[in-house]
């Protein structure tokens, strides 16, 4: 477990600036998600749609970021030959906008 964290930290430190930025955003989203989930467990899930929207938005944003991180990572260049970093970023932005639209409606 600690080993994995060490590898992650090392990887993060060696990463280029944009990937570092992604990592920081992901950590931020992780904290937000854990906070909401904890709140839901402690206080109750009464406006359940709001919980789903809040938590789901954060999780989905996290997933989209993870995808972006994979696609622009030079180490994965072989896998994503057809997808340029610019294309990956625009995909991410489009996906996120759709996500926010859905989240906004679902949170009511």
């Amino acid at each position: 477990m600690i080993n994995i964290l060490q590898i992650v930290c090392k990887d993060h430190q060696n990463a280029p600036a944009r990937i570092k930025l992604i990592d920081q955003f992901m950590v931020y989203l992780l904290i937000c998600g854990i906070a909401q989930f904890a709140f839901c467990i402690v206080v109750g899930n009464y406006p359940f749609n709001a919980f789903l929207a809040g938590f789901g938005t954060v999780v989905a944003q996290f997933v989209l970021l993870a995808n972006l991180r994979q696609q622009i990572n030079p180490a994965n260049a072989k896998e994503f030959k057809q997808i340029s970093p610019t294309r990956a970023f625009s995909d991410f932005v489009f996906g996120s906008l759709v996500l926010h639209f859905l989240g906004y409606h679902f949170v009511n």
């Binding site: 937000c32 909401q36 709140f39 009464y46 406006p47 938005t57 954060v58 926010h100 989240g103 949170v107």
Partner: peptide
């Protein structure tokens, strides 16, 4: 509506901060 229920302010905050975070990002 969600904003009249205090509980859901947390989740509204969740959505809002991820949108804001996205913009800053």
């Amino acid at each position: 509506r969600s904003w009249t229920i205090t509980n859901s302010w947390v989740y509204l905050g969740g959505v809002t901060t991820s949108v804001m975070g996205f913009m800053a990002f």
